[in-house]
Design a binder for these strands. Structure first.
Lengths: 142, 142
DNA sequence: ACTTGACCTGGAGCGCGCTCCAGGTCCCAT
DNA sequence: ATGGGACCTGGAGCGCGCTCCAGGTCAAGT
């Protein structure tokens, strides 16, 4: 097991750009990352671990500001674990509500699709025809 | 049944600001809305109907640009119904994938919470204590 | 006649989360 | 020694989706 990772490796692994990685560090989502003598960053296993969580939380729309707060808790030590749990749990609840809302909207959109399909089956002249075929023109119903 | 609605009514009904409503119109998500002699907008039932769909699609992150394209199809008439169905269906597919990804991330976050809860049960001294209670200090494990 | 409130316009501004850039360093292979 | 590639820095810029603002009109109420 490697004990460090280069920026390129991390970027590829998490599908983030180098710019984003640096941005996250500047924004306090990661601690000040170690450096090689050349000045290049060297990410440790625990950076990777945190980044994994950061990725999950960003993908589920946790704002950068809250992620920074969370990262600060991590840096403050184990005694903040109860608080971290609270942050994550409250995020889960928001996420549940969000997914639920997406489902509801999806359902409404499905109804609209069904409505359109109903129109098409009642008025077959509106259906997409094979390329180049001609048909008697029909007036619109608005 | 009213045959028109004021901007205030629409804003309240869809939980949008007047600014957003006007922005949507400018952006081509709605047709040029009717006006009262005073110049104030008067939304018709079919504006409301389209706005309902617009709301669903925005809430599920369809970008304004694609919504405008959709709205143009609506304005072009019934012969674009097949194309509209395609737009909506492809949106549903993206949405399914998105929800699926949210679920996966949520699962990963849940694992992290469980991990933290495990740590807390192994090291009860880390657990949140009732306000003001004192305990022997314990060193951190990083 | 005056006030209030709802709404109008065009255009500027904002918050977020990146993304890009110029100019530089370091290291390795040819 | 030269070139190329990976990375560095600080700071500017961007795309999106609103959001705000100044200054105005109009209709109804007192």
């Amino acid at each position: 097991m490697k004990d460090y990772f280069t920026p390129g490796e991390i970027a590829e692994r998490f599908e983030l750009t180098l710019d984003t990685l640096r941005y996250y560090e500047k924004a306090g989502l990661l601690r000040r990352v170690d450096r090689a003598p050349s000045g290049h960053r060297r990410y440790r296993a625990d950076d990777v671990e945190l980044l994994h969580l950061v990725r999950c939380l960003r993908d589920t729309d946790m704002p950068i500001s809250r992620l920074r707060e969370f990262a600060e808790l991590v840096r403050e030590g184990d005694h903040t674990i109860p608080e971290r749990v609270e942050v994550l749990q409250s995020h889960q609840h928001r996420l549940n509500a969000h997914i639920e809302q997406l489902r509801e909207r999806q359902e409404a959109i499905r109804h609209k699709i069904d409505y359109y399909l109903g129109v098409l089956s009642e008025r077959p002249e509106l259906a997409r025809r094979p390329e180049g075929s001609m048909d008697t023109p029909v007036k619109e119903t608005g």
